[in-house]
Amino acid sequence: MTQLQTAPNLENADDFYAALLAAHEGLDEADMHALNARLILVLANHIGDQSVLEAAIGTAKVSCSRPQI
């Protein structure tokens, strides 16, 4: 079974981040949410593995260094 990759794995983190911000340039909040939702679904399909996706959801939910209100 594949494990969720939590070590740095991006070929070029800065290039990815810049592309992500560029995709959001000029969008209002509703369009931003919609873009992000589509992006998650595209990436999820690429990953495919249900256990990895559930681990990713769990990681995203608990990984917050701010106090949760």
Partner: peptide
């Protein structure tokens, strides 16, 4: 410069304390 920049910057900072993968970001 815009809400998306803030959104992702804060998401990266939320993740980085516990997740090594976020460090390069």
């Amino acid at each position: 410069r815009n809400p998306a920049h803030t959104l992702f910057r804060d998401a990266v900072l939320d993740l980085v304390e516990h997740q090594d993968f976020a460090r390069p970001l």
